[in-house]
């Protein structure tokens, strides 16, 4: 058997070549992704495509452009839940939305929406707080396949029990059942919830700001990025947000090593809800 040290060194080279192929052939740059999880995902992707090495996967990525959507999906989609971390959604409902209510039009950007569980959670919050009619949610993701699934709003019914508990814990005023139809082992969310959501492809590593947002949600996405790319994204969010606008990250994310973090003040540090400081100076929490 090849010594593991040699195998890892070889695989490291293969990974670099795969990243180069994705960049030069397809224009997607994964070089700033955090290495440990990227290696894991590319390995899994190779397995899923029946390739016995990352090099074999690189060959297919180069020769079969129609595989691109599946490659991007495999490299980007994290899983989520409706109202994941209920305390965060409760804080959005009770502390953030009341402040956003002063704006005539509320723009929310969910960056890296994956299959959309949290986008619809947000839509339900806005609906119940009477703000949805003047809100617009821009839900973006790198993966077109993920966006297509998000747009459908169809999920496994087995999730419903946990999601209902989350919804209640997040301060839901009705019952989650009011928002979906169940058939066989699937649940389909009410089409009405989609009426103010725009789904669009957007690459955080290379695309620019496209809207003026009052709230940006980007949960458990930057954890896949290296420090420089994380910093780049925080700067992107800063440039998108209005003064005093809110940023909500995943509950275990750390921005301790990002220069752009200085532009934000913690509104609730433990829930990772931040506020864009006015004039670049730290601003009091709400």
């Amino acid at each position: 058997m090849e010594p593991l040290g040699d195998e890892l060194a070889r695989e490291g080279i293969e990974l670099e070549l795969f990243i180069q192929a994705m960049h030069r052939r397809h224009g997607y740059d994964f070089s700033q992704y955090a290495p440990a999880s990227l290696r894991r995902r590319v390995r899994q992707l190779a397995e899923r495509f029946g390739c016995d090495s990352i090099s074999a996967l690189t060959g297919r990525a180069l020769h079969e452009p129609k595989l691109l959507p599946q490659l991007l999906e495999g490299l980007s989609v994290p899983v989520s839940d409706m109202f994941r971390d209920p305390a965060v959604f409760r804080a959005l409902r009770e502390k953030v939305l009341p402040l956003l209510a002063s704006y005539p039009q509320i723009n929310i950007w969910q960056a890296g929406c994956a299959h959309g569980e949290e986008v619809y959670s947000l839509a339900i919050l806005l609906e119940e707080e009477g703000l949805y009619e003047r809100s617009r949610i821009f839900a973006t993701d790198l993966s077109a396949n993920a966006l297509r699934q998000a747009e459908e709003g169809i999920y496994p019914l087995r999730e419903a029990k946990q999601w209902s508990r989350n919804y209640q814990a997040a301060g839901g005023t009705r019952s989650l059942v009011d928002y979906y139809n169940a058939r066989y082992d699937l649940l389909k969310l009410d089409d009405q919830l989609r009426r103010n959501i725009t789904f669009a492809q957007h690459n955080l590593a290379s695309d620019r700001v496209f809207c003026e947002a009052h709230l940006v949600l980007c949960r458990n996405v930057l954890i896949y990025f290296s420090n420089p790319l994380q910093d780049h994204c925080l700067a992107l969010f800063r440039d998108s947000l209005v003064r005093g606008g809110f940023l909500c990250l995943g509950m275990c994310e750390s921005i301790d090593f990002a220069d752009s973090a200085g532009d934000f003040a913690a509104a609730d540090a433990s829930l990772r809800i931040y506020r864009l400081a006015a004039n670049g100076a730290a601003m009091a929490a709400p």
Partner: peptide
């Protein structure tokens, strides 16, 4: 390892978390 996340160690011996399946 925090609840709900995979814990990984990066080559530079820093922690990384993921929400992979």
């Amino acid at each position: 390892a925090p609840t709900g996340y995979h814990l990984l160690v990066e080559p530079d011996r820093r922690f990384a978390l993921t929400t992979d399946p």
